[in-house]
Each structure stands twice: as structure tokens, then as C-alpha cells.
Write a protein that binds this DNA or RNA. Sequence first.
DNA 1: GGTCTGACATATT
DNA 2: GAATATGCCAGAC
Length: 102
Amino acid sequence: MSRTRFTRAVYAAVRRIPPGTVATYGQIAAAVGHPRAARAVGTALARLPRHLANQVPWHRVVGASGISARDDPERAATQREKLIDEGVAVTAGGRIRRDRSR
DNA sequence: GGTCTGACATATT
DNA sequence: GAATATGCCAGAC
């Protein structure tokens, strides 16, 4: 199975994100001990299994410029709506207000 | 087991 | 702010 220690650490870190708050991939990567592995965080979440998607608030993880979702625009829309539903201020461009991130 | 791809970041121009 | 270049790590083939 592909879920490595790193991946599990990422899931754990994402789970620790407080509601109504978003974290960047860089922050997650740094949280698991790999400040330069933002990309790995992306792939790990991209291959996030459904059963884990239920317990991991992946929608709280955004890119440095907000929601990225270069692979699936639908995902971006879902993520944006979920964030808005949680009270996160997401602009029309998919960017997050600085007081909610960082 | 080597290579390509990718939900990225940071620095520089 | 946008475009370009480089580094980083894990997953899929």
C-alpha cells in the first residue's frame, strides 16, 4: 500500500486544521517535517481515498494563491463552497482572505 | 527500479 | 501581478 509515514502525517496535520481556517501546502509540509515538500502534500491529497476524505478536511488545504485544483475544476468549486460554508472568506477568484490563512 | 507527473513553494526578472 | 527557473517529495506506470 502506498500510504507512507509522510502521507499519514499529512492527513494528521490536515485533520488538525481548526474549522473556519485554511492552511497552505507549504504549511502542511512544514508541519510534517518537510518544508520543501509542498508538492508531495499535493499528490498525497490528490490520491486521498474516499474513506479518508470523510475524515480529512482536505478542503481546508489551499495553495499559496488560494484554491488551485489544476487537475479538477469541480474539486475547486466544491472546496470553495465548503470553505464558504465553514465561514472562510473566499473571493470569487478562489483566493483566501489573509486573516483566515497564515 | 528508473522515469514522469503533479491539488506547490520560493526566488528572480 | 504574471512569467520563468529551480528544488523538493511522493505516487503511478
